[in-house]
Simulated assay, not measured.
Amino acid sequence: MGDYLITFLGIYFLCLFKFIAGPVLGFAAGYALWEIVVVTVSGMMTSVLFFTFLGEWFKKNWSIIIKKKKPKFSKRTRNIIRIWQKFGVFGIALLTPVILTPIGGTVVLTSFGIAKKKIIGSMFISAVFWSIVMGISIEKLLQIPFLRNMWT
């Protein structure tokens, strides 16, 4: 039980920063799909909750610390704004696990002034969806003999 808990907490900690760590490391640890979903979603949602409720403070103090002259609209910010204009909150939330990080997606939504309830709800739906999709995909991909031989 001690090894299981240490493994679970290690994967959980990595999911605070990178979503993909949950499905990949969960599968490597021999977790069932429901365990992969639980560890991945709980890790992402911890980051989402933390940065949602401390987002305004973080944004205010972060801008004071960083005084470099950066271009206001980089290629990345233009792409985020384009996604925002086309798909709104759910577009950003859907792309957070795949392209952005849990922290990055939450900070983007917070900076757009989205209600905390909407951020948490959309991120939760996205986290559950992507953890199931990635968990099943990794399992199915490793049934291919070439890939299975590389893994073991």
Rank of each mutant, 00 (worst) to 15 (best):
T152F: 06
P97T: 02
N61Q: 10
S126R: 01
I11H: 14
K118P: 11
L142Y: 09
I144W: 14
K68C: 06
L94Y: 11
V41D: 01
L95F: 14
E139I: 03
P145A: 15
S74Y: 09
W57S: 15
G91D: 06
M123Q: 09
A127E: 04
L54M: 10
F90P: 00
I144Q: 13
Y4I: 10
R76D: 05
T52H: 01
M134L: 07
Y12N: 00
I65S: 00
K86D: 07
S126W: 05
P23T: 04
N149H: 05
L54P: 06
L54V: 15
F13I: 14
K68D: 07
W151A: 14
G91F: 02
P23M: 04
L95W: 15
C15G: 12
K60W: 10
K68A: 00
S42T: 13
V133N: 05
K67C: 14
G104P: 04
F87S: 11
G26R: 04
F17T: 14
P23Y: 03
V41K: 00
K60P: 06
W57I: 13
G43F: 08
G91V: 03
V98I: 14
V108M: 02
V38E: 01
S63T: 12
S74W: 06
I81V: 02
L5W: 06
S126P: 08
L5F: 10
L49N: 03
V24D: 12
P145T: 09
F13Y: 13
T110S: 01
V24S: 15
P97N: 02
G2E: 09
G2C: 07
I83A: 01
M123G: 00
W62T: 07
A93Y: 03
L141V: 07
I144A: 08
K18A: 12
R76T: 02
L100H: 02
I20C: 03
A93Q: 06
I64E: 15
K72G: 10
L147I: 04
F87V: 10
T77N: 12
L94H: 10
L33C: 05
L141F: 09
T106D: 01
W34G: 12
Y31L: 01
V128C: 00
L95A: 12
A21K: 06
K18T: 04
T106I: 00
G30C: 09
L142N: 05
L95N: 07
K70P: 06
I103G: 03
S74Q: 12
Q143N: 11
S47G: 06
